[in-house]
Design a protein around this nucleic acid. Structure first.
Length: 270
DNA sequence: AGCTCATGGCGAG
DNA sequence: TCGCCCTGAGCTG
């Protein structure tokens, strides 16, 4: 469900709601019960995101590592009786609000050393201060893999998912099949800068908008996009619809188990 | 009611 | 490359 912007947004909301306050911690479903009972009543110290990974720190350097995967969800609810407790892995709450975790790929209690093990496998995150795009470039420039494949590799740019991949490749007019080693340093830096521009916007707006002002519905005289994910995008989930720039049909194909969207005309093979 | 698909990522072969 | 994990929204009947 989430790309990095959602996780960073949540980290900020958790800080806002809970940081330095004692919280209730429960696992109504039972699958995180042992850890929950250990944390219950402790002070929540901080929350931080790295790519799609969320770390919630409690007293005594205890970190809850959460990764939502494709279908996991973190939602704010009023305190009180939790809805459908049989799927509620984790609830963190005060008398004011509750944060409910369902269907995560990962929910585990980690030591600082274990947190380090997780983050050491992640590349630079465009949403983190001082992220170094050269660390991604080192892998990209040496790789025979396509840029489409590389952009979803979390060691290269942590937090990028299927939407940002499709959109940033479109915006930079880069064909998804371009091998990494054929991407110039200049082009890589343009991709990175664009992500570093789009993703904070996504955190702020709580949706992914990638369409430039001159191509927006208002400017083009078309209806705003009605999409469950919200956000105006060029190609993601727009298969067989006209490209917002050139009018040719947006393409889609299955690639490494995911859907890949692109415009065959705007994104020329090089 | 049942089916399919989804903003991920892992491990088996 | 495929199957699998986990949940729930949006269809189809």
């Amino acid at each position: 469900m989430p790309e990095g912007h959602v996780i960073h947004r949540l980290a900020g909301e958790i800080q806002q709601a809970f940081a330095q306050r004692p919280v209730r911690v429960e696992s109504p479903q039972g699958r995180f019960a042992d850890a929950a009972s250990r944390l219950d009543g402790l002070r929540l110290v901080d929350a931080a995101a790295w790519g799609k990974h969320l770390f919630v720190e409690f007293e005594a350097e205890q970190h809850v590592h959460i990764h939502l995967g494709l279908i996991g969800k973190l939602r704010w609810n009023p305190p009180g009786t939790p809805p459908s407790p049989e799927t509620l892995r984790l609830r963190i709450s005060t008398t004011e609000q509750a944060l409910d975790l369902r269907g995560p790929q990962t929910c585990a209690l980690l030591s600082p050393a274990e947190v380090e093990q997780v983050t050491s496998r992640l590349g630079p995150d465009p949403l983190r201060a001082n992220a170094d795009p050269q660390l991604g470039w080192q892998r990209v420039s040496r790789s025979e893999r396509t840029i489409a494949s590389l952009l979803l590799d979390q060691r290269i740019a942590a937090g990028v998912g299927n939407i940002y991949r499709a959109e940033v490749l479109f915006r930079q007019k880069l064909h998804p099949d371009t091998p990494g080693r054929q991407v110039s340093h200049t082009k890589w830096m343009a991709l990175w800068s664009d992500l570093a521009h789009l993703m904070p916007q996504g955190v702020k707006d709580h949706r992914i908008d990638t369409v430039r002002p001159e191509h927006t519905p208002q400017a083009m005289g078309r209806e705003p996009r009605v999409d469950p994910h919200g956000g105006e995008v060029y190609v993601y989930r727009r298969a067989h619809q006209p490209c917002l720039v050139c009018g040719s049909e947006v393409r889609v194909r299955q690639f490494e188990g995911r859907k890949l969207y692109w415009c065959g005309k705007c994104q020329r093979r090089r």
